[in-house]
Design a protein around this nucleic acid. Structure first.
Lengths: 191, 191
DNA sequence: GTCTATACGGCGATAGAC
DNA sequence: GTCTATCGCCGTATAGAC
């Protein structure tokens, strides 16, 4: 048996804290405490708070892509895959670990930290637009459906659903928002 | 002529800073500087940071309701009013001054500060559901459309649209997300 | 009402011993 | 690699003079 390395624990602790409290609300001291690491230890492995945050953000972004891609790559019609993506299990009340960073002024002001966030959503919209395009081409979806716009809608419903859920302190509005788009999508006249 | 009162300037400065940097990222000192008020002045008019934040949040929430209600109360069909709401002019890259607070752990942990946020979104979903119900009843929208779910979708698209716009540093994805839902809504088979 | 003085702990980092 | 010491500045107030 072996324990995870200190640097590993620092990254994971940072990921959790960024998720819970954001960049501005997360201090090096809090990270160290959660990781069970000392001051010197943290500054040995990382240059400072931004460097550690970059490692954490990059990992969260990568995880998000992998998790999402699993739904889009699975077999099924376009609508089935979009449905699988929207209905996949999520920590709804915690919100999106990547989308959350969008509200963090110090993250958005730093080009390096901002990059993974920007790339993640660009990729996600692109990927979903691709799935929708397949649906249009196969005649499953109306020919008039705009894949890029609809993809943005799908991603926005998820991100906005988190906001509504947190505001209500209940997962219900998230589920409703998802049901809402899926209802609209299902009622489309076939192409 | 008269100048605005100091307490008024403190509230407005707090609103701006909460919008730009969130509660955790906003310090009393920063508020004072922006308001052109001294330390003692701020603590004379308000009990402290939470008290001042409550005044700011309440006002922003009230403003949001008034602005939204204008679209819903205007004449027009249900879809026209929803469209007016979704397309109304917004500071897209700044995001929603109320929805943003949803990501602020210290706001959500304080029942008093949280209240206006919760109420605002509950009201908004309710209000939109009402408009959609009218649309269903008049036959403008399909009988199968779920007003509550679709209302959640509409609000989520706006809130999520802000996230996408900030991530991309461009208003384009917001507009696409809006176009996307409106496209789906318009393509509904009539009831 | 507004000002200055003072307080104490936390933030983010560096230095140097072990 | 990890620890403790130290640093200067900021956050969030309180006290009391004007």
């Amino acid at each position: 048996m072996w324990s995870v390395s200190t640097s590993e624990r620092l990254i994971e602790s940072t990921r959790e804290l960024l998720w819970e409290r954001g960049y501005v609300g997360t201090s090096p001291k809090a990270i160290q405490r959660r990781a069970g690491a000392g001051q010197g230890s943290m500054y040995h492995h990382f240059d400072g708070k931004p460097d550690l945050a970059l490692a954490a953000i990059t990992r969260s972004a990568d995880e998000l892509r992998v998790a999402a891609d699993a739904q889009f790559t699975a077999p099924g019609t376009a609508v089935e895959r979009i449905t699988a993506y929207l209905r996949r299990e999520r920590a709804v009340l915690k919100g999106c670990p990547v989308g959350r960073l969008t509200q963090d002024p110090d993250v958005m002001a730093d080009a390096t930290l901002r990059r993974p966030v920007e790339d993640t959503f660009a990729w996600l919209r692109e990927r979903i637009a691709g799935v929708l395009t397949e649906g249009v081409q196969s005649g499953e979806l109306a020919a008039g459906l705009d894949p890029a716009a609809t993809a943005a809608t799908v991603v926005a419903v998820v991100q906005g659903g988190y906001v509504l859920a947190r505001a209500a302190d209940s997962t219900t509005p998230f589920d409703q928002a998802v049901d809402g788009v899926l209802g609209l999508l299902a009622a489309q006249p076939a192409g």
